[in-house]
Every structure is written in structure tokens, then in C-alpha cells.
Design a protein around this nucleic acid. Structure first.
Lengths: 173, 173
DNA sequence: TTTGAAAAACTTATTAC
DNA sequence: GTAATAAGTTTTTCAAA
């Protein structure tokens, strides 16, 4: 099944403190660390939590330039899949979204310097089936929540409702 | 200073195996785990690594709907900052990028269901200074690397060059 | 900065509720 | 599912190089 109030509380505690330590979570949530561990393991088994990661500062890691591109592809039977995969394999491409509406893609890339942008665009346009591309530089990343950190962007209520739980459930405790 | 060949090797080992375990990194890189730990701590101190996180499955966490929006704002003195911050505070908004070119923003939001999209768009348009918004649904996330995972998208050479290091440096070892 | 060895923390297993 | 405990691992700290 999906998440319950306790799972949500644990995930939010991780998101808000940027720490996955069971002991710290116990201190904040009053859920015993053995239970915290049981819950986290459970979420890992169900695939809700995929893996441990470090969040990095892209700029300090040498990838200070972010480019967002719109890629328009030719219409065709199941074509999107192939075009999308080809875009995903280009060096520097971190995200590829296949969008509703027109047959196009939004592509987010991070690069060390402007020199590489030209190469990137050339590689986009070399992909078979590409019709038109339009790339813009990001001046500043005003917000860039990732991974479990995105849970900070929701009220506890929203997260619970999304699993069909109302506040009654939360009040069990 | 920035990253050297050893830092890059450690970060890539983490990215490629989706694991931050010093012991595993030692096995893969032959760098002793206490040294691995020292390097990671060092990168944390310098802010290259920001924090420990879990990667989550957005869909399983109840946030299966991704929306990418383009927001056009009115021109104005330092206006962008305020508009950007206001957008960032809207529930469901995970990423806000201030773009070059026209005075606009790219906003990435994740939501539990379509019901909330209307609310989202209304909230966008209620922000002072907003001129026009255009939102599209993501049909599928073909690629969605995050955090340290994005380092998989680069050759070791590119990552080293971005810190002004050539292959000579790497051959020290 | 690099390590090996010691201390602390985390994970797993076991049990009882 | 929850939670306590104990045993086994792993991570983190620390002192020496």
C-alpha cells in the first residue's frame, strides 16, 4: 500500500533536516529508532525510497551553467521514445521530459562552460527526427528542490490526502 | 580549491552505484575508507556536497503528476527576484529558474492529481507582476537524474577539465 | 592529507506485544 | 505493526605519520 501518516512524518523529518540518521529522526518525531528503521526499510522495499544520495552544489562541482531547451520532433509512430532516448544520451543532459500538447521535449542540461553549449545544440540537432530546438540559459536557480527535499514543498495535509488519508488517520496517535 | 581527480572519482563512484557507503567506495576505487571519509567530509565543508538525502519515487510518494510552466512577468527594476520568490512559495512548486531572454521563469511542479493543477495556475496568476503563464503536463520523464546522480551524465575527462585539470593530474596515481 | 585502529552509530535479528 | 534488546557491521573519529 501507499504511505501513511507515520511514513510522511519520517520523510518530512528527513527533508527538513537534510539528514537520514534514525537517531535524529527519533529525537524529532518521538518515533523509536527501531520503528523508524522498520519504516524506512519498508519504504525501500516498496520502492518509495530508491537510494541514498548526496545533494551536490552543481556550480561548485564545475557545472555552473544550466540550459533549458525545448525540442520539437517530427510526428511519427512511437517515434518519441527513440528521440527521447537519443536526447538522454547526450553528454550534459540531465533531464528529458516528454510533454503533452505538441510532440516535444523539455531538456535540462548542465555544463561547465559556454563553449560546450554549441556542441550540445549541435548534438540535439543531429538526432534523427528533430525538427527544431530552442535553448535558453538559466540566469539563476531561484529554487531547485530535489529528491526527498521536494517534500518540503507540501503541507502534511496535501501529502496525506494524496494517499486518500484524511486527518482522522493522523489523529490516531 | 575545487575538485581534484580523487574527489571526482569518489563522486562518480557514488553516482554510478547509488550508494554513499565508504566501504563500497573503497572496494571500487581502492582508496581506503578513512580517506574516502576524509574527502567526503572535506567536500561537505567546502559545500560541494550539501547533504545526505534519499532519492524517492515521486509517483509512489503520491506526486505522480509533473507540470512544467513558463511564466512571463512584467518588466521592472529587480522585480524578478520578488516574482521568483513568490512563485517558489506556491505549494507544489519544486523548481524555479529565472531565464535569459525574455523576462520569464520556468517552473517545475509536482502534484498529486489534476484537481490541483487549476489551483496551481490560479496561484501563479495571482502573483503580483505576472503577465502570462503557460503550463504543460509531462507525459513521461524519460530521464530525470538528480543530485550527485547527474555526474553519470559526464565523462571523467569533462568533469576534470571543468576544474582546469588535465589527464596528467589523473596519472599521479 | 593519508591511514590504521578504536569508538560510536547504524543495521539486522530476535523476541514480545 | 510496534518497540526493546542484543549481536554483527559499518561508519566516524582520532592520533600518528
Amino acid at each position: 500500500m501507499s504511505l501513511d501518516a507515520r511514513d510522511v512524518r519520517i520523510l518530512r523529518s528527513i527533508a527538513e533536516n537534510d539528514s537520514t540518521s534514525p537517531e535524529r529522526i527519533q529525537e524529532e518525531t518521538n518515533i523509536p529508532k527501531s520503528t523508524v528503521h522498520y519504516r524506512i526499510k519498508n519504504m525501500k522495499d516498496r520502492g518509495v525510497i530508491k537510494n541514498d544520495l548526496f545533494e551536490i552544489d552543481f556550480e561548485k562541482a564545475g557545472l555552473g551553467l544550466t540550459v533549458i531547451s525545448e525540442v520539437l520532433a517530427e510526428f511519427g509512430e512511437g517515434y518519441q521514445e527513440e528521440v527521447g532516448k537519443a536526447l538522454a544520451e547526450i553528454e550534459g543532459v540531465n533531464e528529458v521530459y516528454f510533454m503533452m500538447g505538441d510532440t516535444d521535449f523539455i531538456v535540462i542540461s548542465r555544463l561547465p562552460s559556454r563553449d560546450m553549449v554549441e556542441t550540445l545544440v549541435e548534438e540535439f540537432e543531429a538526432v534523427d527526427g528533430i525538427q527544431r530546438t530552442s535553448s535558453k540559459f538559466v540566469i539563476s536557480s531561484i529554487k531547485a528542490d530535489e529528491s526527498v527535499g521536494i517534500l518540503r514543498d507540501y503541507s502534511e495535509e496535501t501529502l496525506l490526502n494524496s494517499h486518500g488519508l484524511d486527518e482522522t488517520v493522523e489523529k490516531i496517535e
